[in-house]
Design a binder for these strands. Structure first.
Lengths: 110, 110
DNA sequence: TTAATTCATTGCAATATTACGATTAATATT
DNA sequence: AATATTAATCGTAATATTGCAATGAATTAA
């Protein structure tokens, strides 16, 4: 096993879990926070910023890129990474709706 | 390896990733959605509701309980699970702040 | 051209996760 | 007491994730 039985869940549930999994590692959280923080286009010293080896960072970036949360543009020998705002907002809406379920009316229990 | 180097990240980054990981499986998303949806206290037919074996559901519930997102009260032979609203709201604030970084003022790039 | 820089990819070891059958523990019912 | 019900735990197999050294590909600098 070791793999989720995605076929028995709704698309929404699977999507939420896929995005959540992306945030399920502190390195990816740190990468995204850094990309948001810097106000100029970022061009590649994430390895120094975060204390992980270059292949490791590269792998995390690949996952975020695969999900569409970031995009990378090649500039000479470096690559400029930044948040893909359209996709980020879409993901944010999905996650916000999930997190905001506590606002729906319901009876008290327990 | 196979384990995250949590010591090089901030508490906030680690906390976000820990909660996100909880949502990183569709079964746990489904469990939480179900606990939110039902308006009476839920008492244990999650196994029927979701199509996974009882030990598997029990394991997912354990993780959610460990994080404090749900609480379970024993009632006879069954256990009544429900969302821990206080902790949920705390988690929600943390995640919302992370997701809402796109609202901070920043220059355009890329 | 040669060397340097930057980042991606490959391959691998260590660990984590998912799922479930079998069992156990606790309470309810008869 | 004997049986049934409910849910937790144990053990285990299959797969995923994390991290990095080594290497490769592309571009730039000398």
């Amino acid at each position: 096993m070791g793999l989720a039985k995605t076929e028995i869940f709704t698309d929404e549930q699977n999507q939420i879990s896929v995005f959540a999994k992306a945030f399920g590692h502190p390195a990816r959280v740190a990468i995204l926070q850094h990309l948001f923080k810097i106000d100029t286009c970022f061009c590649g010293d994430l390895v120094k910023e975060i204390g992980l080896a270059q292949p490791t960072i590269s792998q995390h970036l690949k996952e975020l890129k695969y999900l569409g949360l970031i995009k990378g543009t090649v500039e000479g020998t470096s690559v400029c990474y930044c948040i893909d705002m359209d996709n980020w907002k879409e993901m944010k809406d999905l996650m916000t709706a999930f997190l905001g379920q506590d606002l729906l009316p319901k009876d008290e229990c327990c």
